[in-house]
Design a protein around this nucleic acid. Structure first.
Length: 486
RNA sequence: GGCCCGUUGGUCAAGAGGUUAAGACGACGCCCUUUCACGGCGUAAUCAUGGGUUCGAUUCCCGUACGGGUCACCA
């Protein structure tokens, strides 16, 4: 990272929605580039026609954008190493695959799929420890290859693995990892349909695009030696690898789509605020140096340290994520919270003659999920049915009888307030509390109940009165007095 | 099964030979309070296991157990 510019890439396949584990990889990838003043590249790996999902590419763009993971080069913004969509780079892969054949590091294989399937089946039945391709075509004569090619026989190109020795690669987190070459399969690099396999296209593109740091899921750890052999065959520099562990549902299962909370969109739907989602998933598998855990993407970039990435899988915890979400919401500047919360508040409250700012201020510290909002404010439009049991409060020493008394005494006070706002209501009510020599709660518990009909409300009696306005407040206090038999 | 990787409280985790083994979420308790919440204070709870190495191992080495990954014309 000293002199060369860091270049990282996020290379998703357009096969559906954005998995949260995938998104976390994108976050780390983005952060590592930005942390060192480098570039973050987006590349679409669509070499699998079978699994291609219509609209998935757009979904990738959309998700990355809403998360603030802006790419410096990519399919839509361009860049000097394009195209950034693999299906548009077909000739490149073919050319390099053939070059590898010429160099004697790869070979044409004419085995039919049926033969390979039968081979695998036999190997499985024989319980062979090493179930790799039997290298049937590895030593075909040049003439034979030429003849089959000219006859138009379908073929794939396979990488020629060394038969002995070992290969060592370095991962920034795991250190050196060595494997015996004997266990390495002569993997296919160019498929019969002319498309490159992931492993091959990846190496070619990462090299051609000048990628310096490859950040990817742990599932690639085992195939990394093959990558390195490819780089070596071409005489290219190997990038720095950073393999990150999976996010788990529990100790033994990965987070999967069956859990209903594996995709980015699931969390947005559940009322999570996007920066909080990013914050939480970044914390799953990475720990900051200090004690603060609440970060924006920029702060995360500032704080990030590759060495802090965990080597063991992390179990996803929705409870903690919710706490992080609540904290993000609480820390939002008032205007920003208003912007974020209003759509949800409007779902539960259509009324527009209320003091919305008082409501927002009261509700902001009490909001864990944005989707909690509609239910929290639904009493504003209409008083819910409620039981007079709500007037009982042990600590405040209130009950329906004392509440009736309290409400009767406060009604004329409320009626006498001219300029209705939080401050004036507060002043008037507290003057009455003082005059009567009662506890605050003696008066305020009943008022809050009379105005909301709920056990849990966004704010106390004074705040609710301020939010609802004079007319509604008085109307509701009168209705409560009546309900209590007054 | 072969190979690779991992294992600190319920969860995320710090710690890198000598620590009272951080912190956060959660739980529980107390305080504050105009309910709930917020905020404040506090309590309980962790080094998978057996052997080494060492004056001393959570920390280093080996084995075991457990878990994960991988062995595709998927990425």
């Amino acid at each position: 990272m000293d002199n060369i510019k860091v270049r990282t890439r996020f290379a998703p396949s357009p096969t559906g929605f954005m998995h949260i584990g995938n998104l976390r990889t994108a976050v780390y990838t983005y952060i590592i580039a930005k942390k060192y003043g480098g570039d973050f590249i987006l590349r679409i790996e669509d070499t699998d026609r079978e699994r291609y999902v219509e609209g998935a590419v757009e979904k990738i763009y959309e998700t990355l954008k809403t998360c603030g993971l802006n790419w410096d080069e990519g399919p839509d913004v361009g860049g000097q190493f394009g195209p950034y969509i693999q299906s548009e780079r077909m000739e490149i892969y073919k050319e390099y695959a053939e070059k590898l054949v010429e160099m004697g590091k790869a070979y044409y294989c004419f085995c039919t799929k049926e033969r390979i399937d039968a081979l695998h089946k036999a190997q499985q039945e024989a319980k062979l420890s090493n179930q790799t391709y039997d290298r049937h075509c590895r030593d075909l004569s040049e003439d034979e290859v030429k003849r089959l090619l000219e006859a138009g026989t379908p073929y794939v190109i396979r990488q020629k693995m060394p038969v002995d020795g070992s290969t060592t690669f370095n991962d920034l987190l795991y250190g050196d990892i060595t494997v015996e070459n004997a266990i390495l399969d002569d993997q296919i690099i160019l498929k019969a349909d002319g498309m490159p396999t992931y492993n091959f296209a990846n190496v070619i593109d990462d090299h051609l695009m000048g990628i310096t740091h490859v950040v990817r899921g742990n599932e690639y750890l085992s195939s990394t030696p093959k990558y390195n052999l490819l780089y070596e065959a071409f005489g290219w520099d190997v990038p720095q690898y950073i393999h990150v562990e999976h996010i788990m549902r529990d100790a033994t299962h990965k987070l999967s789509k069956r859990d209903g909370d594996a995709y980015f969109g699931d969390f947005v739907d559940k009322g999570f605020y996007v920066p909080a989602i990013i914050n939480y998933i970044a914390l799953l598998g990475w720990a900051p140096k200090g004690e603060n855990e609440i970060f924006s993407l920029d702060e995360l970039t500032e704080e990030f340290d590759i060495n802090g990435i965990s080597k063991s899988p992390a179990v996803f915890d929705a409870v903690k994520m919710t706490a992080i979400n609540a904290e993000h919401l609480r820390r939002l500047p008032f205007e920003k919270f208003k912007e974020v919360a209003m759509p949800y508040i409007k779902q539960g409250c259509k009324r527009d003659d209320i003091d919305i700012d008082v409501l927002l201020r009261a509700i902001q510290p009490r909001t864990e999920l944005l989707t909690d909002l509609p239910e929290k404010v639904d009493f504003i439009d209409q008083m819910p049915e409620y039981s007079t049991e709500l007037y009982f409060n042990k600590k405040m020493k209130t009950n329906p009888e004392t509440s009736l008394e309290a409400l009767k005494s406060i009604l004329p006070v409320l009626e006498g307030i001219g300029d209705w706002n939080e401050e004036s209501v507060h002043k008037a009510v507290f003057e009455e509390i003082e005059r009567q020599g009662v506890k605050n709660g003696f008066m305020l518990w009943p008022l809050r109940t009379a105005l909301s009909g709920k056990a849990l409300t966004p704010g106390g009696g004074i705040e609710l009165a301020a939010v609802l306005g004079k007319n509604v407040t008085i109307e509701r206090v009168r209705a409560a007095i009546e309900k209590l038999g007054g």
